[in-house]
Simulated assay, not measured.
Amino acid sequence: MKIVVGITGASGAPYAKRLLSVLAERRRVDPALELGLCLSPTAPEVWALECGGDLRQQLREQMGDIPLWGQRDYRAPFASGSAGWDAMVIVPCSMGTAARIAHGISDSLLTRAADVMLKERRKLVLVPRETPLSVIHLENLTTLARAGATILPAMPSFYSNPRSMDDVVDSVVSRILDHVGIGNDLMRRWGTT
């Protein structure tokens, strides 16, 4: 499986950090899992505020040899549908990024990769973390859902009785993994004890 993870400058960097941690662990036991990373220009700034430290350095330490592609590096394999990447997650997804994708504005590698996922009918999961949502936001998200994207707002569940912030984050990350087809046990499932 080949998955692209895009990180924007929206609030919600802890969701991205945890998702990457789980994917890095999974990759250690499943070398067939191929990952690509792409950041918006403001992602490092928000990461520093919400997670602490330097995003690029932490990615190198955590993800090892997984390439981190620049916003203008259209040589990235996931910039073309012929490369056959299976899924993309944008977490967190800013409303500006969602708007550009919804309207076919592929002005960066991140938005181009999302456009590829839509045109190829592959999995695209957008994780917005914005509140409240304006009518413009809602219309853009509806446009994306109609085009085939999964809109998975960073809305944690509480029926599993989370005991920590990590548990709250895991409830969203678990659902992200579900939607890209990666089994996980990050949270207690509905109907289980």
Score class of each variant (00 low, 15 high):
residue 104 G to W: 04
residue 34 E to D: 11
residue 83 A to Y: 07
residue 83 A to T: 13
residue 78 F to S: 03
residue 60 R to Y: 06
residue 150 T to P: 05
residue 161 N to S: 14
residue 125 V to P: 02
residue 158 F to T: 08
residue 65 D to W: 01
residue 100 R to T: 03
residue 87 A to D: 02
residue 191 G to C: 06
residue 44 P to W: 03
residue 79 A to P: 01
residue 136 I to D: 15
residue 110 L to K: 03
residue 79 A to K: 01
residue 101 I to Q: 04
residue 178 D to T: 05
residue 8 T to D: 09
residue 3 I to V: 15
residue 105 I to W: 13
residue 48 A to N: 12
residue 16 A to V: 02
residue 134 S to I: 05
residue 84 G to L: 13
residue 128 P to Q: 13
residue 73 D to H: 09
residue 70 G to K: 11
residue 17 K to N: 08
residue 61 E to P: 03
residue 176 I to Y: 04
residue 182 I to M: 15
residue 72 R to S: 15
residue 179 H to G: 10
residue 36 G to A: 12
residue 102 A to Q: 08
residue 11 S to F: 01
residue 26 R to W: 00
residue 6 G to E: 02
residue 131 T to F: 13
residue 125 V to D: 02
residue 41 P to Q: 10
residue 184 N to Q: 12
residue 99 A to F: 01
residue 187 M to P: 00
residue 137 H to Q: 11
residue 191 G to S: 09
residue 47 W to V: 02
residue 187 M to V: 09
residue 51 C to D: 04
residue 134 S to R: 10
residue 47 W to M: 06
residue 37 L to S: 05
residue 126 L to W: 05
residue 115 D to F: 07
residue 109 L to G: 10
residue 150 T to F: 09
residue 101 I to N: 09
residue 156 P to S: 13
residue 185 D to L: 02
residue 69 W to M: 12
residue 94 S to T: 14
residue 32 A to V: 08
residue 88 M to H: 05
residue 10 A to C: 08
residue 61 E to N: 14
residue 109 L to W: 03
residue 107 D to T: 07
residue 143 T to M: 14
residue 184 N to T: 02
residue 116 V to K: 05
residue 128 P to G: 10
residue 28 R to A: 15
residue 180 V to T: 10
residue 118 L to Q: 09
residue 55 L to V: 04
residue 1 M to E: 11
residue 120 E to N: 07
residue 141 L to R: 04
residue 45 E to G: 03
residue 83 A to N: 11
residue 189 R to H: 12
residue 30 D to W: 10
residue 65 D to L: 12
residue 162 P to F: 00
residue 64 G to V: 11
residue 60 R to C: 06
residue 172 V to G: 10
residue 31 P to E: 13
residue 134 S to N: 05
residue 86 D to F: 01
residue 160 S to R: 05
residue 172 V to K: 02
residue 125 V to C: 07
residue 87 A to Y: 01
residue 17 K to C: 00
residue 159 Y to V: 03
residue 20 L to D: 08
residue 90 I to W: 09
residue 92 P to T: 06
residue 167 D to C: 03
residue 126 L to H: 01
residue 141 L to C: 06
residue 99 A to W: 05
residue 66 I to M: 11
residue 43 A to W: 03
residue 26 R to G: 05
residue 182 I to E: 15
residue 175 R to G: 07
residue 103 H to Y: 08
residue 97 T to E: 11
residue 5 V to D: 06
residue 187 M to I: 07
residue 81 G to F: 11
residue 50 E to F: 05
residue 169 V to P: 00
residue 86 D to V: 12
residue 37 L to C: 04
residue 161 N to F: 10
residue 70 G to V: 04
residue 65 D to A: 15
residue 113 A to H: 08
residue 161 N to R: 15
residue 80 S to F: 07
residue 29 V to Y: 07
residue 81 G to S: 12
residue 114 A to L: 09
residue 165 M to F: 11
